[in-house]
Design a binder for these strands. Structure first.
Lengths: 197, 197
DNA sequence: ACCTGAACACCGTTCAAGT
DNA sequence: ACCTGAACACCGTTCAAGT
């Protein structure tokens, strides 16, 4: 994880890891079956950092909090985000996170299947948002300022407001609010278990 | 592009391309500055396939159409999606697509800066949705069926509906509708240029 | 029984040597 | 002037040989 955080996901090689551990590459294969298994361990280590506590707020801030929590965790380890693309995360911590989120949505009154779709949608949205945090060569700010106003008037107008390229956090928050607005309209009325005294 | 579509993005190596062209790797460097430039060409080739025609419908179906068009294009070339992560697409066709979309949103009454944020949000959502189309090892269907019902009741209930793992198209459509619902509430009233006779 | 140097088959990129 | 074989410094993975 230190290597990925410091030098990015491409810098994580079996050789680099072996060197950091003052060992040889062959020795690593005694502890992990190969690079894919190593990457899965890193992914699940990020899920382990997520706070699954129920803040007891109303559903919207709770749902937003879970999505934001995942976003912040991946923001602290941006090099891990690309590793989440290789396979569906299925480590113990990822399983717990999914279970927690789907259970909350079901308790909110969403049908089991729809809860799964909502979780997948939000999780993939968070992932998509964090993936852009490690763009290899972002010189795009200058590129947008230098754009030809005649050929690209709308692009230029947006760049002139200083909002293009779009700041990652702004975009994430904006899209999350859009989705929560959309969910608001789909939310079943008055669900959940009764907490009686 | 044939190599990427047939064998996936990892199969695209300078050697594989040189072989397919019955040439040598060194010769490729006379036509392209390196692998990153080659990847950028593939990305822009996908943007070139997008239909920018104005269907003249109302804003919601037009916006949905543009997003769906990008989704379908990437679905036809799923191996290209991961290549869009390396850098902000800035080829001529990507520039035209962004200009078109931002202009439509501005014509709809959104401020220049907000239009850019909306475009970035939708574009990244589309990308995030297409990225999962080439998961290396999707055995997750069986994995979800075999999940322990005691430990993961909500996950199990969702899997039992046959909706987990979530079908990519279902998830894309669901999230897109959520975002369009959200945009509906933020849309400025009565904008656009006048088309007088 | 546990560990590992050295090899194998790859990769992107470069450059001296060919035509 | 244009092309390219062969090399360089990497990579993930394996296995015979060491202790």
């Amino acid at each position: 994880m230190e290597i990925v955080n410091r030098d990015g996901p491409d810098a994580l090689s079996m050789r680099a890891l072996a060197d950091a551990l003052e060992s040889g590459t062959a020795t690593l294969y005694r502890h992990v079956s190969g690079r894919p298994a190593l990457e899965a361990l890193l992914v699940d280590a990020v899920f382990a950092q997520l706070d699954l506590a129920d803040d007891g707020d109303e559903w919207r801030s709770r749902t937003a909090g879970l999505a934001r929590g995942m976003y912040e965790a991946l923001r602290r380890h941006p090099g891990v985000a690309p590793l989440m693309l290789r396979s569906t995360p299925n480590g113990p911590n990822a399983m717990k996170h999914r279970e927690r989120c789907i259970a909350l949505l079901q308790a909110e009154g969403f049908a089991a299947g729809e809860a799964a779709v909502i979780y997948a949608t939000l999780a993939h949205y968070v992932l998509g948002s964090t993936l852009q945090l490690i763009r290899h060569d972002d010189r795009s700010a200058q590129a947008f300022e230098a754009v030809d106003p005649a050929a690209y008037p709308a692009t230029r107008a947006a760049a002139a407001t200083g909002r293009l390229p779009v700041a990652p956090e702004d975009e994430f928050s904006y899209g999350l609010e859009l989705m929560l607005d959309g969910l608001e309209g789909r939310r079943p009325t008055a669900p959940s278990a009764v907490t009686a005294p």
